[in-house]
Computed example of a mutant assay.
Amino acid sequence: MSPTEQQRRPHRWEQLSPTDSQAGRILADLRRGLGREAGDVPEMWVYYTTLNKEGYRTAALKAEHAALSLFGLHQQSQRIPMHKSGVGLGEAALNLYLAANANQAAIDGRMNMIATSTDTTELVGHLRGLVTLLRERAQPLDYTRLFLDLRYWDNPQDRATIRRHWGGQYMDWHKRNPRAEASAHNNA
């Protein structure tokens, strides 16, 4: 079987149940990675799927480290899974924006800082603030998609595509303007 045909090992965020008896310890291990370099936190080694024997800090390892650490922060004290396949970063931020009593200007500002980040380190710093807001509202996020986006963020062409994807999700006209959508259907 070729490497492309082999099943990849699932990421921790895809496996962890909030009711797992070890969840608290695992999440604490993952949060230890916040603000630290990929591969430098021995408690996290067991959770990596991209760690290599040569010790190189690859783009994949950096992205996985960031996603694991952010997931550890997001899942903390939550009774439902905060990883939800299909909920991209822009959609999660939009759901936060549309929530009752949301500080929409602050969320717009956070998304602007995220979108204008020029490297992964800056991006992860801004994502940490957004993830804290997502946790407060128990708003899930697709961490597998985030991992892939982080993996390619430092490439300017990929960054532009990822930025447009997030922007398209965040500015979803149909969700932001449901009355206008209903009016358009009634006038058709």
Rank of each mutant, 00 (worst) to 15 (best):
Y47D: 03
Y48T: 01
T49S: 12
T50A: 10
L51C: 04
K53D: 14
K53Q: 12
K53N: 06
K53I: 07
K53F: 10
E54F: 11
G55C: 10
G55K: 09
G55S: 08
Y56E: 14
T58D: 05
A59S: 11
A60M: 03
L61C: 01
L61W: 04
A66V: 02
A66Y: 08
A67L: 08
A67S: 14
L68T: 03
F71N: 04
G72M: 05
L73F: 07
Q75D: 07
Q76T: 12
Q78D: 07
R79A: 08
P81T: 15
H83C: 04
K84Y: 10
L89P: 01
L89D: 09
G90H: 07
E91N: 12
E91D: 15
A93V: 01
A93Q: 02
A93S: 04
L94Q: 15
N95F: 10
L96Q: 05
Y97R: 08
Y97P: 00
A100N: 11
N101M: 07
A102M: 09
N103K: 13
A106S: 15
A106V: 11
A106T: 12
A106I: 07
I107W: 11
I107V: 14
R110I: 13
R110V: 10
M111H: 02
M111L: 13
M113A: 15
A115L: 13
